[in-house]
């Protein structure tokens, strides 16, 4: 029996079909990854909760963004570019005894602080509170810029500390952890750094 050739299938329209699918996916999908500044809101207090402990004036760093998007740090006008350095000086001051570190009973001096140890500024990074006040009609963009600068202040301090303790920056460590999720020793290191410079930012509405 003579072998019959199967006729070749015309694949000319394959490209058209593929293009159609491609365009469908281009239109219905997005490429952006959600990212942003993470904050944790304070827990809701029960109505009969005891009044919050009084924080010493010197342990509070007040940043106020008013309705004209002007910036007042400790009641003085400043530029957004100034926040980072001022916040760092404040957090890193280490002028006294801090709250007890995790798994410790008594509070100690901040041995890793490199600040001026000014008695009129914060006692310890874990006592230093940044109070971010904003008006109702403050622009959100400015608010985020300020948040970002405050975040940068903490990151810079954490980077410095991580470099001294473990020889690599905090940012690198966090990036490494996101690629290697199960790395417990790295996780522990990051937690240590975080507890030595905890991010204490309180957001408040001024009226």
């Amino acid at each position: 029996m003579a072998r019959r050739d199967t006729p070749e299938i015309n694949a000319g329209s394959m490209a058209d079909i593929a293009f159609l699918l491609l365009i469908f996916f281009l239109v219905t999908t997005t490429m952006d990854i959600d990212a942003g500044i993470s904050r944790r809101l304070p827990e809701k207090q029960p109505p009969n909760a005891p009044p919050p402990p009084i924080i010493k004036e010197k342990n509070v760093f007040e940043v106020f963004v008013n309705k004209n998007d002007d910036l007042l740090i400790e009641n003085e006008y400043h530029k957004i570019a100034d926040i980072k350095q001022m916040a760092m000086d404040f957090i890193d001051n280490g002028g006294g005894i801090g709250n007890p570190m995790p798994n410790e009973v008594a509070g100690k001096d901040c041995t890793w602080c490199k600040g001026t140890k000014d008695p009129a500024s914060s006692d310890h990074p874990n006592k230093a509170v940044i109070l971010l006040k904003s008006d109702r009609s403050t622009q959100y963009g400015t608010f985020i810029q300020v948040q970002n600068e405050l975040g940068r202040a903490y990151t810079t301090l954490r980077n410095r500390l991580a470099k001294d303790m473990y020889g690599e920056t905090y940012t690198d460590m966090v990036n490494k952890l996101s690629k290697d999720k199960g790395n417990e020793s790295l996780k522990a290191k990051i937690t240590t750094i975080k507890s030595m410079y905890p991010e204490i930012i309180s957001e408040q509405e001024a009226n």
């Binding site: 990212a35 993470s38 809101l41 827990e43 904003s134 109702r136």
Partner: peptide, 30 residues
């Protein structure tokens, strides 16, 4: 949130989230 929107609106949302104990918040940015 749009960068032109006001912080007051955001604060209202935050207040609501606090009431129902949804405490993790991320401000979306580029």
């Amino acid at each position: 949130a749009d960068e032109k929107s006001s912080v007051g609106t955001i604060n209202d949302i935050k207040k609501e989230l606090r009431e129902i104990n949804a405490l993790k918040v991320t401000y979306s940015t580029n």
